[in-house]
Simulated scan of single mutants.
Amino acid sequence: MPKLKKIKTESLRSQVYMQLKSQLMAGVWKAGEKLPSESDLCETFGVSRVTVRAAIQQLEILGLVETQHGGGNFVRDFSTINAMDTLHPLIQISENQDIITVLEYRKIIEKGTIGLVVSKITDHDLACLEDTYTRMIELSTTQDCVQQAAADHQFHYRLAQISQNPLIVKVYELINVILSSAMVDIVGLLGTEMGLRYHRQLIDALKTGDKALCEKLMEDHIEETIQGILHKTKRPLEKTLGTARP
């Protein structure tokens, strides 16, 4: 059994997911190898079976593992995926430094994107952003890191669509899996408070049509996220995860 550690705070599927993903990317388990049973993982992490299953499901989405009915969970050979698709998240989103890479890209692109949004946004667009924000608030009271990240991701994707720039939208869709995968890790590490705070300010600034303020808020939002990730990852990942927001 690899050196996985018990979750020291309230059970978080995101913590289990990130530890397992880290071990898989490090090659602890080889392609075709069967993962420890759910019971063994529950005992190792000190969490419920529901939590372990949710983490496994997220790994399935990324193409890292395959669940065989009645047979357990097996490591997929994702080396061919890497060779075929240079934008697959398994290449870039494997270590926390790569999360920073994604955030640096976002800081450049999304600052410019929201600058375009200011002159094109409609009342309907604002209503859609408000709906997404409400969804983020509702999910913030849960432990569902994956759904929390999905709502956050949807907010930013909606801004790309509002920009009405087909190239921005196309590139966003092209690297969608990379962005959404990174978002899960970010929410798992930092929680939802920062995102809620900045998204509220962004919507309000968009309502006033203040382009300079919108650009500054977006830049500040992503820079604060970068600094938060750097602060969290000064310690080993397993220890850091113990302080993640429930």
Rank of each mutant, 00 (worst) to 15 (best):
M1K: 13
S11H: 06
Q15N: 12
Q15S: 13
V16E: 07
L24C: 00
A26K: 01
W29M: 00
P36R: 00
S37P: 14
E38N: 15
L41E: 04
C42E: 15
F45H: 05
V50C: 08
I56A: 04
Q58V: 13
Q58M: 14
Q58P: 05
I61Q: 14
L62E: 14
G63W: 11
T67E: 09
H69Q: 11
G70P: 08
N73E: 12
D85L: 12
D85F: 14
T86L: 09
P89K: 00
L90W: 00
L90I: 12
S94G: 07
N96R: 03
I100S: 00
L103T: 02
Y105L: 07
K107F: 08
I108E: 07
E110F: 05
K111F: 08
L116Y: 11
S119C: 01
I121P: 02
L126E: 02
D131A: 14
T134S: 15
Q143L: 12
Q148L: 08
A150V: 15
H156N: 12
K170E: 13
Y172S: 13
E173P: 03
I186V: 04
V187L: 06
V187D: 04
L190P: 04
E193G: 02
H199G: 04
L202N: 01
G209Y: 05
K211H: 07
L217R: 03
I222Y: 02
G228P: 00
E238D: 15
K239M: 14
G242E: 07
P246F: 09
